[in-house]
Design a protein around this nucleic acid. Structure first.
Lengths: 311, 311
DNA sequence: CTGTTCGCTGTAACCGGTTTCAGGAAGACA
DNA sequence: TGTCTTCCTGAAACCGGTTACAGCGAACAG
């Protein structure tokens, strides 16, 4: 009986016991599917992310899993590694109602995707991405870019290169783009004119970053420092420097962003951001949106530069 | 109407079109919850794993996600990082029927957990773990241990240390134990008596491995090579060597296991196993079990030693 | 002693699909 | 024209929970 399972207080103790006994005897297991149907909510949240392109996504996921589990929701995973998978996933959301809300991680949404989700009024929260019409967990990427630049400027660097993601999306800037803006802001404040020829853009992976960094570092008037929009890309920069026989940090300094685990292994200086916390926060916002509560405002740890051996 | 959506061939073309039009007009989305209920199957598989203790688990997950998605099942994630989470998860399976089957990764099941799952006859497949009564995806860890040992023996090493998981850890990992057995087998075959004083066991992480390796490498008659049961632990060994001022591979050679991404970054020699493939294979076995098909027998790539700079 | 209230429990409707079943329309054949 | 198939479609039962509602006995007031 439903009232016993859900601890509705109106039932008498004796009856409660009798039902409990019967449940045990019959080995009865309630069906959560039936419960979801009758409640009108699947009791699950979907998480959409390019999980395996970057360790930072996994780290964020960690925070999400924790929080979602605590609140009694199931966590349904949609991995996006190819455009086909992306299209499949969003078509699926449009066609079937199977989750109460969506957490989108490290994936800038396209205009028609936002429109489709809005049409079905499915709550959505973005983490590590922004869109004017959608709630998101803010990371102050501009400030992070400034921090990286200030760190390098303080060490006397004047020619600072940048390796980041290609801006794929006309709406909603990527975090890489915002970090670059921060770099420019800090440069201008220091009286240095930003130099577009020192900026390179590619896919968010080690290989692309290595190629781009090699271009930057090959020339005679190469930058004396490189700011990579992520640790993954910074590792590519380090590889390029090694291949060209440049010493780090003497010939070229390198700073990354995220502080994923490898960063400490490779002694990479980087801007740390609270990845796990951002995932948890995203889950919190989403569940609040689903349940119609006002989310409690929780400040996120600030960004800090972790200085290691590469600067 | 259900017959149109599922393309049941009995409907007339005209009627089919009429229904389609109405669907589009009303913006109707079928509820997958209702479908699951009426079908009697949640159309989802659960994945239970200690996701964040090791990158190798994440890599396996990648294969799982791919295959499960293809077959039209949802993938519900249960992360196990603490004994409490583990108990929660299994209690949950026992109490509510919310998945069609369970894929357990890198988590040896306890006797009572197996009994409980069997009682509810929930199909289960293990990956990177074994149990006499449960199907699993085999990795020939013993052979892997032999390969590592043979690689070191071929380079003249006679005193070979081992750093692996403690046998009675809270989750009871055992692949480490099988790899150690492989090491011993190869040593004996080469006429070398295995030396228990060169074996150290701890938690499956970098920090523990570093401490254990430091113990091994501090003594006068230290081993000339160390076999770590995973790349994660091998990294700890490298750190210990660096702290002690030992050169790798001149003073001490190091070989790991798994070939996760960091291994190539750090130029770590390691035994590669097809992580992603093992996940996909596990998913395949599980879905076959759920649908009552005989799984097609797919051979898994063999283990190989990837030689890099640390040996 | 009757009428009202209160506390608990059994019943039935509902969620939104799938599937079975019965029956109407159209076509075949005598 | 009447009967038998065949083909398609509408209606209804079902999956297994939740919840609104009705009903019943006990307690209590008048």
């Amino acid at each position: 009986m439903s009232r016993v399972l859900n601890d509705v207080p109106v039932v008498r103790a004796e009856m409660r016991e009798r039902v409990r006994a019967a449940i045990g005897e019959l080995g009865y297991r309630p069906s959560s599917t039936a419960r979801s149907l009758s409640l009108g909510r699947p009791q699950a949240v979907g998480v959409v992310a390019p999980f395996f392109t970057s360790p930072s996504v996994v780290e964020r996921l960690r925070g999400v899993v924790e929080h979602v589990g605590e609140r009694g929701y199931d966590l349904v995973l949609y991995d996006i590694e190819t455009p086909a998978q992306r299209a499949d996933a969003f078509r699926d959301f449009a066609r079937r109602a199977r989750v109460d809300g969506l957490l989108v991680v490290s994936l800038p949404l396209l205009a028609d995707e936002v429109a489709a989700l809005r049409r079905e009024n499915l709550p959505v929260v973005l983490v590590d991405a922004e869109h004017p019409e959608v709630a998101h967990v803010a990371t102050d990427d501009v400030r992070g870019g400034e921090l990286a630049a200030e760190h390098l400027l303080a060490r006397g660097h004047r020619r600072i290169g940048f390796v980041g993601d290609v801006a794929a999306n006309p709406f909603g800037f990527t975090s890489s783009e915002r970090r670059r803006r921060g770099l420019r802001v800090a440069l201008e404040r220091a009286g240095i004119a930003p130099d577009a020829s020192l900026e390179r853009f590619g896919r968010h992976d080690r290989q692309d970053a290595r190629v781009l960094a090699a271009q930057l570092l090959r020339g005679e008037d190469r930058p004396t420092a490189v700011f990579a929009a992520s640790d993954t890309q910074a590792i590519g920069v380090l590889e390029a420097a090694r291949e060209l026989g440049l010493r780090v940090p003497e010939d070229v300094a390198v700073i990354g962003f995220d502080d994923i685990e490898v960063a400490s292994l490779l002694d990479l200086t980087t801007v740390r951001q609270p990845l796990r916390q951002s995932g948890a926060r995203g889950a919190e916002l989403l569940i609040a949106a689903i349940e119609g509560d006002a989310p409690r405002a929780a400040p996120i740890e600030p960004l800090t530069v972790i200085r290691r051996r590469t600067t």
